[in-house]
Design a binder for these strands. Structure first.
Lengths: 142, 142
DNA sequence: CAACAACTATTGACGACAACAATGATTGTC
DNA sequence: GACAATCATTGTTGTCGTCAATAGTTGTTG
């Protein structure tokens, strides 16, 4: 009979939970949660995105995006702008305050990941990251 | 500004979610969920465990264990037995039906993990598994 | 040995989160 | 111009994780 930890899928599930917990406690003081942070980080790389894009790229349901953008707007970290091409769509852009927030919390975010990956040396962390990235890319295509 | 996928912790979080989803859809037909399955698998290796052991080893809250064991008892996959040493404790053991269930679903469980790890070749899967296991062990100690 | 602290399983409550269906407004198609 | 498709939004449901509280039992200690 195989043991619990013999299953890579289960290990992923469990460590993913732990990782989310760590991120959320780190974000607690700022009033945001992991999903907000992920959205902000995505906006920082895209210079404006339709909510539809945020949904498919981040893997969150469109209905979830609504609340997240609402929260970020209240905090002044993001804005909804009308799309010139399509009046149904809104373009979400990062504000200067949002960009500043990411700068200020960047170091703390790295510390969270470092904490989780503490048992691994730098080369191993790199290997892990590469493998996970391959899996994530495959999921994105599907 | 770092992108989303540059963070190993976030990748873990996201793939963990995906892995849990896959497991749950696979378990759907049997009426169980991932947490039940994890508990069964743990019981299969331990030959009887106190509920508080299940809580600490699986990382679930003690209150969550109660409902899980309730469900497994209803299905006849596990039993609660009184502890001879401590009348507060109950010892949870796997029944023969539970053992049979694990045998029958073992192959399907492997298929789920294989599906998730499809982008990686066998050697890479092994590397990933080893790294994740190291992280999981470190978390368990904490 | 009596009072008190700590532990075990359990129940209940609460918020967070993900998945899904339905709607209103707008756009594309035929 | 009718009709399907798309986008953001709202609402609902079920699961999950966390916390607080309780009853019963054990361990400790004055």
């Amino acid at each position: 009979m195989r043991g619990l930890h013999s299953d890579t899928g289960y290990l992923l599930y469990r460590l993913g939970l732990r990782s989310g917990q760590l991120f959320n406690t780190f974000l607690q003081e700022s009033g945001l949660r992991l999903r907000h942070y992920a959205l902000l980080r995505f906006l920082a790389t895209s210079e404006g995105a339709l909510q539809r894009e945020l949904s498919s790229r981040l893997g969150y349901d469109p209905s979830a995006i609504v609340g997240l953008v609402d929260d970020l707007e209240k905090l002044g970290f993001a804005e909804r702008r009308p799309s010139p091409d399509d009046r149904r769509s809104r373009i979400v852009v990062l504000t200067e305050d949002g960009r500043a927030f990411l700068r200020d919390t960047d170091e703390a975010g790295l510390r969270v990941t470092n904490d989780l990956l503490q048992p691994l040396d730098p080369a191993e962390r790199d290997t892990l990251h590469t493998l996970l990235q391959r899996l994530a890319e495959a999921e994105l295509d599907a």
